[in-house]
Simulated assay, not measured.
Amino acid sequence: MITRLGLIKTSLIDYPGKVAAVLFTAGCNFYCPYCHNPELVSGPVPEDFLSMEDILRFLEKRRPVLGGVVITGGEPLLHPDIGVLTGAIRDLGLEIKIDTNGSFPAKLEQLRPDFVAMDIKTSFSNYSRVLPSGTAAEQIVRKIRESLKILIGNGIPHQLRTTIVPGIVAEEDFDMIIPEVRGADSYLLSGYRNQRTLDSSWAEVDPYPAEVLEGIAEKLRLAGVPAQIRTN
């Protein structure tokens, strides 16, 4: 259950075109060694997280200036009671963006957020690189494909995202990714930042040069997928 949530009171970059508050849930079913929010993957809920009641009181007070609320993690759809939170936010008249790894398609279809940012970690044949040991990668990939169909087929506004991490994803992986994502609204590429990582050894991994991201973005655009590179 969601007992407490992290909060960024105001963001101008996390919800496209909107001033938003950002909520963080703890817990994730993936294990990306380069994750820059390691405290949200496993272990206790961070001490500075607030109760859901406090979060909702804050949102009610701030709703005149907020365009929406971003729910991120961790993996927010991991929580069975995520619908309680999204329902309370909708009751305040605020739109909802959810950040997800795509492995909970039924929950995604049930909630139907106003906007979804979904991570594509790497080519589907390499997903074992971002999963806990013993996790059946084939089942996860099947669910991710289902989530893509929901987003692209049902017209839910969305953005696909990949962090371009050496050892996890390379430019040639996009030859396999592109057929899976045709028809997507947009695709955001982010460079790898190695200052803070779940697996400390990944702090030694150097990011790709900028021209690698530019080459991937151009490959996506040539395939008809609008792509941009995150610069902030």
Rank of each mutant, 00 (worst) to 15 (best):
E211L: 06
G167F: 00
R161P: 04
D175R: 13
V22T: 14
L111K: 02
L78G: 07
P132D: 05
V181C: 04
K107T: 11
L111A: 07
V41S: 03
D48P: 04
F115V: 10
V22G: 05
P226C: 08
T3I: 12
G6R: 10
P157G: 02
S128Y: 15
S51G: 06
F124H: 01
P113C: 07
P209T: 05
G191V: 01
N37I: 06
E180W: 01
A227K: 13
L77P: 11
V22H: 02
L151K: 05
R63G: 03
I98S: 04
S103C: 11
E47F: 01
F30N: 08
K97A: 10
A20Y: 04
L50T: 05
S123K: 15
L148I: 10
L56Y: 06
I140K: 00
F115T: 07
P132Q: 05
L111D: 08
T231E: 13
E60A: 13
Y31D: 12
K143C: 02
V22L: 02
M1P: 10
L131H: 03
V130F: 09
G83S: 09
D173G: 00
E75I: 09
L40N: 11
D206E: 15
R230I: 06
I152L: 11
S103W: 05
P179R: 03
F58Q: 02
R62K: 14
Q228Y: 14
P46Q: 14
